[in-house]
């Protein structure tokens, strides 16, 4: 399912216009992206949580050529599935 299909499913489920559904979906994912870009945690009960993990710079290797490469410090979001969703996916 992609974003457009999600919007259309929400429109039908909630009986709202397509533009309203699009706004809700946009607000939902934008709020989470915003929070993470500020380094904040995200906790959506029943669905998932995210936190931003910081990685220091390190020397890595190009697995193909074996050349050393310097990996600069980076931040990546860490995803943790919520309990309800985890149980539902695995049932």
């Amino acid at each position: 399912m992609n974003k457009l299909e999600l919007i259309s499913a929400l429109k039908n489920e909630a009986n709202i216009s397509k533009s309203e559904a699009a706004k809700v979906v946009q607000i939902f994912f934008d709020s989470m992206a915003d929070a993470m870009s500020k380094g904040e945690r995200v906790e959506i009960r029943g669905l998932c949580s995210f936190f931003v993990k910081k990685y220091k710079s390190y020397v890595g290797r190009n697995p193909k050529t074996g050349d050393k490469v310097i990996i600069s410090p980076k931040k990546l979001p860490f995803f943790k599935s919520g309990k309800e969703l985890k149980d539902r996916v695995d049932s």
């Binding site: 399912m1 992609n2 974003k3 999600l6 499913a9 929400l10 489920e13 909630a14 809700v24 979906v25 939902f28 994912f29 989470m32 992206a33 959506i44 029943g46 669905l47 309800e84 969703l85 539902r88 996916v89 049932s91």
Partner: peptide, 21 residues
């Protein structure tokens, strides 16, 4: 409603792809 749709889709084994996210 939105959360339920996402959960239902994943429960059915279907991936959810949000471009830009």
């Amino acid at each position: 409603d939105l959360l339920e749709i996402i959960k239902r889709t994943l429960e059915a084994g279907e991936d959810v792809l949000i471009s830009g996210f």
